[in-house]
Design a protein around this nucleic acid. Structure first.
Lengths: 138, 138
DNA sequence: TATGCACCTTGTAGTAACTACAAGGTCAAG
DNA sequence: CTTGACCTTGTAGTTACTACAAGGTGCATA
């Protein structure tokens, strides 16, 4: 299959597929007589794997790891397990961060009922002490 | 105050401060005779405002907006309110995404008790159908 | 006075993971 | 034989910084 078809089949832009090839994430495809890339079912599977891992928040280095690990059936499953666990910890940390962030934003909203910026608690809580503010010169 | 002092006072790298100036986020500072930047209390306040907004997840365009709005005391507070609300919606969306992501990762972990990658449910659930896999060429 | 060191200047390039675009080649249909 | 979809390579842009190089400044100390 050509790159466009693979792109449609996986919901990936052709440019991204070429990028993956350049980066060594995806093995390079065969070429047709007219130099078009010619992909196999194996490429399709690998690309789906990559996209899924990326959706799950794994970065490119981690995806490389996962690919390498999954390439040899005799590898120790614990290595994959660890990557997933690390990822889980990371995701939990992000959720915690965002949750406290949401709380702060919520606080801001409920605390301000002013009309004018001059009285706005939101601007105030962002820490701008306007008394000492200098006007932005060009 | 010189850039290093401002940097220490705000927990911002000097390079980042210069970057903010280049980007027009921070008004350009006066210069000493020896061409060093010389910051005022107003700069300190603005930089704190910017850093705080960034911590709260506002991107640079939004920070620009907030700065512009907060610059005129007579502006309508509702504009700031809307930015904060939008941000809140965005944060909630991210939390939801990450939560379902965490669930999936958790599922993976509990579902796989294998030793070998060949039997690994994690690799499987990442969608790689190894039967059709092609080996990665050079 | 010399020298060492922290600090400052500008300019350029690197980061992550793509995305966009330009200039041109290929192929099937009408 | 032309139109249009598709493909090729190569380069540059995105976000919000961060790092580094090469050189100037300011102050304390030997």
């Amino acid at each position: 299959m050509r790159i466009g078809e693979l792109a449609r089949a996986t919901g990936t832009k052709a440019e991204t597929i070429r990028y993956y090839e350049r980066e060594g994430i995806l093995p390079s495809a065969d070429r047709t007589d007219s130099n078009y890339r010619d992909y196999s079912a194996g490429h399709l599977a690998t690309l789906n794997f990559v996209r899924r891992a990326r959706e799950l928040g794994f970065n490119m280095a981690q995806v490389r790891e996962l690919l390498k690990l999954s390439d040899h059936e005799d590898n120790d499953c614990a290595d994959v397990d660890k990557l997933v666990k690390d990822q889980l910890v990371e995701v939990d940390r992000k959720i915690a961060d965002l949750t406290s962030l949401r709380d702060e934003l919520g606080q801001m909203l409920t605390s301000c009922q002013a009309d004018r910026i001059g009285d706005c608690r939101i601007v105030e809580s962002l820490g701008r002490t306007r008394k000492t503010q200098v006007s932005a010169g060009s």
